[in-house]
Amino acid sequence: MSTTRNTIRWTSVLPLAGLGLAAALLLAAVNEGTAERIERERDARVMRELARALPPERHDNDLTRDWVDERLDELGTVARVYRARLGGQPSALLVDLTTPRGYSGNIRLLVAMEPDGRVLRVDVLQHRETPGLGDQIERGRSGWLNQFAGRRAGLDDNERWAVNKRGGDFDGLSNATITVQAVIEAVDAASRWARQAPEALWVRPSPDEATPP
């Protein structure tokens, strides 16, 4: 007895297996009961973000059901592209992209553009930039994001997509050059991609289920 004290007897494992089974059943039931609502909430959040970026009169399709995932090679990330249509015609592109080049990790942006890549509006959806410095990119804290509207990346506009501290045409924010440069580069990449996007982008089928990132 004293030497085999530490070996586990099978009879003692049975309650553990029973507990595991009960836990699995409980979680399966709750998951079943909440899955639909969680999906609705996620869709609603994405809808709110999209509605803020693009006025409702710019589209008549359900954006949460009309999207494709696109690889942006410049950033090395996959962006979700929502296709806004009006009367069946291309109206705008909303690109939900994440740049890893922020000062403290990822910055998630939503870039609304004309189909030709001219920027309508940029929103910051998520970031972890320094409070008081990098977080001034938020629309609630400064108007910095507004300078993107109306610009289009590419040679014909003769604009340099960089902060003016680095010889570009964009205003910066003091002590937040890395943050600012990351956002500028990300919007630049999105705008360039949209300019060169093939017509076929608009006819590619959406995946059936909209599962926001």
């Binding site: 553990l16 507990l19 595991g20 836990a23 409980l26 979680l27 709750v30 998951n31 909440t34 609502r37 969680i38 909430e41």
Partner: peptide
């Protein structure tokens, strides 16, 4: 197992 189950439960309910 009990703790993990309850946390998952609360996580799901909060998400919903």
């Amino acid at each position: 197992i009990i703790i993990a189950t309850l946390v998952t439960l609360i996580d799901l309910l909060m998400q919903a």
